[in-house]
Design a binder for these strands. Structure first.
Lengths: 221, 221
DNA sequence: GTCTATAGTCAGATAGAC
DNA sequence: GTCTATCTGACTATAGAC
């Protein structure tokens, strides 16, 4: 029936994990959604945890490869070492959000899953993530430092943090969006515009003046 | 023994929920931590879900009251209607992060819990949140619109979104932080400085130029 | 490789003694 | 109000027939 049992499980689990979370999604619901037998997950992957690991690696590795390729391309295009900030941010952010346009690869489903992993407290998932992310951070950080030479190291750390947080929140997405949704708003969730908005916001934030916050002594009152 | 069974349950559940998540925390672990009987939760709160609701309301109501009070104070201090952007952001952001300094009230424990609720997909939690947040958003939005008169409505929506995301991510906190933590970094997680950094970043982001992202045709390659 | 059947665990909730 | 004891249900995982 289905192309492949293993593939069907990956597809179904991606969908359900992203909708409900890891702990909340049972192997029963996954195998039902995939149209395969309950025992198939343990046969093909060994355990639920191993399934999660496989799923993350399956998607994150190509995404991070994309990020590093874009960074290399930028390096080549700017041999003087001065890569414009917005291009750097785009290289980091676009591969993640681009997945939502690639419907063939699971599309928006995986983007939500990815956002979810950023937040998940499970130690196992955190470990898997760290291993997948560390090389990327290690390469992007000096590029950002070069693009923002006047920013102290501590500040750079936090501002990178803010960008990652922004990305994670957007990808885990639309739950919180509904909270604010008293506004009708054209459903402009097309990722094309979203990426541009995110880059504009993040670039401005990264470039924020340093001792700037006017502190406004007390909040009146 | 303990002050009050009900209070002990609230305290313990706040701690465990924030550390492990809602689904991952069992009533058994809560009652063990609180030093009370397993049946006490159901006796005092009725169910696990009702406990979560009570916990959220217990903390969010005062926080949102604080937000609205600060907004009113700003309105009074700026009768012309032009509240500076950074003060607006502070009024929205500080009551959340301030809780981490108020150790008497549960301190950082609740901040993480709060960050977690922003992300939790459970429909019940989302509903409880919407009810608590709606009045706040409804009041802050026009103030932001007045502070950024040139920003189209759609843009304002997204940028507010980004600020909320930033806040949520920071509060759900430090899990992702460890991912990037190849940097040693002075453990400057003192919320005082964090608030200032967040306000600076968010203010700059809200003020980002409009059609600005230079689009950089393709990413080279 | 795929299935059924089931073992073993742990969850939330409740009845009823104190 | 608090406790013990227990019910009921859901889960992961596995053994073993096909």
């Amino acid at each position: 029936m289905s192309l492949d049992t293993k593939e069907a499980i990956l597809r179904a689990s991606e969908k359900l994990f992203s909708q409900q979370g890891f702990k909340e999604t049972s192997l029963r619901s996954i195998t039902a959604e995939a149209g395969v037998n309950l025992a198939a997950v343990n046969y093909h992957f060994g355990s639920k945890d191993a399934l999660i690991d496989a799923l993350l690696a399956h998607r994150l590795r190509p995404m991070n490869r994309d990020r590093l390729q874009r960074l290399e391309a930028l390096r080549a295009a700017h041999p003087d070492g001065a890569i414009p900030l917005d291009k750097l941010i785009r290289a980091f952010v676009a591969p993640a959000l681009d997945l939502s346009r690639n419907t063939q690869q699971g599309g928006a489903v995986f983007v939500r899953l990815l956002g979810r992993t950023y937040i998940e407290p499970s130690a196992k998932i955190q470990d898997a993530l760290r291993e997948l992310y560390d090389p990327v951070i290690q390469r992007f950080r000096p590029a950002f430092a070069a693009a923002l030479p006047e920013l102290p190291e501590g500040e750079l750390y936090w501002r990178l943090h803010f960008v990652v947080g922004l990305l994670a929140y957007l990808m885990s997405g639309s739950d919180m969006m509904r909270l604010i949704a008293s506004s009708r708003l054209n459903e402009a969730r097309d990722s094309e515009q979203l990426i541009e908005r995110l880059i504009a916001f993040a670039s401005a934030g990264m470039l924020a003046p340093l001792g700037a916050a006017p502190t406004s002594e007390e909040h009146t009152e």
